[in-house]
Amino acid sequence: MTSQDSSSALSATAPLPKQRVKMSAARRREAIEGILYTSPWIIGFLVFIAGPLLASLYLSFTKYNVLRPAKFIGLTNYIFAFTNDPLFLPSIGRTFYFALASVPLAMIGSLFVAILLNQKLVGTTVWRTMYFLPTLTPIVAAALLWRWMLNPDVGLINFLLDKIGIEGPGWLSSTTWAIPSLVLMGLWASVGGSRMIIFLAGLQDVPTEMLEAAEIDGAGTWAKFWRITLPMITPTVFFNLVLGIIFALRTFDIAFVATAGGPARATWFISLHIYQNAFTSFDMGYASALAWVFLLLILLLTLVQFRLSGRWVYYAGER
């Protein structure tokens, strides 16, 4: 189907007379329509999300344990976080280390798998399902398996390393290797998962005749990838990058289940610190302050990415 087809089909069903309108009126109409289309979310945001969001912002300026009325204490929580909490700043550092180690690998890995599975393979359906399986393996089951694989004394990985003469590290039982182990576990769980699926969907937007034309011009596989495929899927790359960073920075489950923040706080991420303050120490006010500091950090990072995106993300339909 081409665009001509669709427009002719449209003109056949809707031959409305068109009036010339002033530019500003058109813009106003556009704005009204845009707000109308966005309104379900605007309403949903105001009704379901804005309240709790603002509540947590307010509570970050209070001493509040949920059970007793909140007491306003100004910036005390924020000051305490930066001056008196020996766990807060290191936990932020650790979280960024985890994100820095996992996001690039995850992006490259998923894109590679998506391209691989976008080839015309026999049994594509089965291959894709196999790659997707880790996403469907519940984290509790996966954690059990990984604990066995990474066990320093009797685990499979160190057993294999031993066979080729390498003394394996302690993995989850090592302050140095705990985060790389979590990165490894996270990669396995997600390389063929939703990120890959999103890339795969993005790859469908790459017009085949452009690739064919390039081929006729003598472009090799590599050149086609850099000059056509990659630029065409930048919107999905951007999406996966922005959300990949957000989710990596918010990592909670995997550390909670596999290491509980240990050993020796080696995987004590900011999310665990917030959780512990909120639900173990009943310091909901303080936890809210930590959460908002964290939110501002991610927001800043995301804004920078949006600012830079103009230089490398290509939108065919940008307005």
């Binding site: 604990r147 302690g170 039982s173 705990a178 289940v257 596999a258 509980a260 050993p263 995987t267």
Partner: peptide, 14 residues
């Protein structure tokens, strides 16, 4: 003793 394992205790498994 086996290496200490963080968080998830695998003593029953061992």
């Amino acid at each position: 003793s086996p290496s200490p394992s963080a968080g998830a205790v695998n003593a029953p498994e061992m």
